[in-house]
Nucleic acid binder design. Structure first.
Lengths: 192, 192
DNA sequence: CAGAACTCGAACATGCCTGTTCGACTTACT
DNA sequence: AGTAAGTCGAACAGGCATGTTCGAGTTCTG
C-alpha cells in the first residue's frame, strides 16, 4: 500500500482538519476568510492553497463533506413507521448536523455558481421531503399547507435554533426537545 | 418656512430614496456595498457620503427607519383581545415589514457595535414578546416551551418566508396565510 | 540516512470596498 | 436672474482578501 501517494499520512490529516475548520467557520460566518479558516485549522494559508486551488473549491469540498456526513446519518436511519416518530427521531439525532448543513449550504450559496448547489443538495433534501409527504398522505400531517412550505419551516427553525445556540440565547441541550415539539405542533392543524 | 434649511426639497427626497434603497438592498444582501445602494437609489456615491458620513451611519439610519416604521404599525394596532386573533392580525398586516426588519437587523449586526443593536431593537421586540407572554398566561398558547423560544420561532419563520419569497420559492400572496397558520399551530400543544 | 513530500512565513500582484478631495455642472429658492 | 446648495464623475489613499511565488525548514518514507 504505497503506490498511489507518498506522504499521505499527515497530508490527508491536514485536509481533514481544514475541512472541519471550514465547516465550523462557515457555519458561524458565511463569508469567513481563507486566512481565518486556515488559522482555525492550525495550518498555514499556503498549505491550504496547496490542497485546494481556490476558495470556491474549498467551499465546495466543505459542502460535499457535510453532505456525505448527512447521507451517512440519514442513510442508516429508519424513517419508516409513524411519520411523527420518524420526524422526531430524525430531529433529535441529527439536528446539529442538519442545522450545520443548512448553514454551510447558505454560505455556499454566496460563493458557488447558482445551479451547482441544488444539484448536490438534491438527494438529502429529497429524503426529508419524502418523509413529510408520506406523513401528509397518511393523514398524520396537515395537508392545508403545501409540503414545500413545511420543509422550509423545518429548514428555518433548525437554522434559527443553531444561530440561537451560537449566540448563547438557547441552551444546546434544550434545542432538540424545543425543535421537535415545535415542528410536530406546526405540522398539525391548530383548531379542529 | 424658509429659515431652517435651504434646498431641502430634493435633498431630503434623496435621503429618503437612499434609505429606501438601503433597506431593500440590505434585506437581500447583508453586506451590500455602498456603491450598490447608491446605484439602487439612483444617486452618485459621493452624494450618499454627503448625507451619511460612513457606511455604519447609513446602516444605523436604515435600522432606525425600519424600526420607526415598525413602531408606526405596531403602535396603531390593537393587540388586546384574543391573543390568537391579535397574533393573526399582526402577522397578516405586517409580515413583510417584520421580515424586512429582521433582515436589516441581522445585516446591521455585522456592521454595528454589538450592544448598539439590541438597544434600539428593545422596545418593538418587547411588544411581540408581551403578546406571547400574555397568550401563555391566559392559557391560549402553550407553556411547555419558554416564551423566548416562541418569539425566536416567529422571528425565524418570518425571515425564512421572506428569503423564500425573494428566491421565488414562495408566492408573496401565500406567505401571510402560511405563516399565520404555521405559527398558530406551533404555539399550541400538538397532542393532548 | 537520504531524498522526496510537505509545510510555512514573507512578500508580491490584483481587485474590491471604503472614505475623501477636486472641479464642473445642474437645480432649487428668493 | 443670481446665488448658494446640491449633485456628479473621476481620481486618489488606505485597508483587507484572494491567489501566487520563493526559499528555507521540517518530517514522513524507503
Amino acid at each position: 500500500m504505497s503506490h498511489s501517494g507518498a506522504r499521505r499520512a499527515d497530508a490527508r490529516q491536514n485536509v481533514d482538519k481544514i475541512l472541519g475548520a471550514a465547516v465550523a467557520c462557515l457555519s458561524r460566518n458565511a463569508d469567513a476568510s481563507v486566512s481565518e479558516i486556515a488559522q482555525a485549522a492550525g495550518v498555514g494559508r499556503v498549505t491550504l492553497y496547496g490542497h485546494f486551488p481556490s476558495r470556491e473549491a474549498l467551499v465546495e469540498a466543505a459542502v460535499m463533506r457535510v453532505l456525505s456526513e448527512g447521507e451517512k446519518v440519514l442513510g442508516g436511519m429508519d424513517l419508516t413507521g409513524d411519520p411523527r416518530e420518524a420526524l422526531n427521531v430524525l430531529i433529535r439525532s441529527s439536528w446539529l448536523l442538519l442545522a450545520q448543513a443548512t448553514a454551510v449550504l447558505e454560505a455556499a450559496q454566496a460563493s458557488l455558481p447558482p445551479g451547482r448547489l441544488q444539484e448536490l443538495h438534491a438527494k438529502p433534501a429529497q429524503r426529508v421531503d419524502n418523509l413529510i409527504r408520506r406523513g401528509q398522505a397518511e393523514g398524520v400531517f396537515r395537508t392545508d399547507l403545501p409540503a414545500d412550505w413545511l420543509v422550509s419551516v423545518l429548514h428555518h427553525v433548525l437554522h434559527g435554533a443553531a444561530l440561537d445556540v451560537a449566540a448563547g440565547r438557547l441552551d444546546r441541550a434544550d434545542a432538540p426537545h424545543f425543535i421537535s415539539e415545535t415542528i410536530l405542533a406546526a405540522y398539525t392543524r391548530s383548531d379542529k
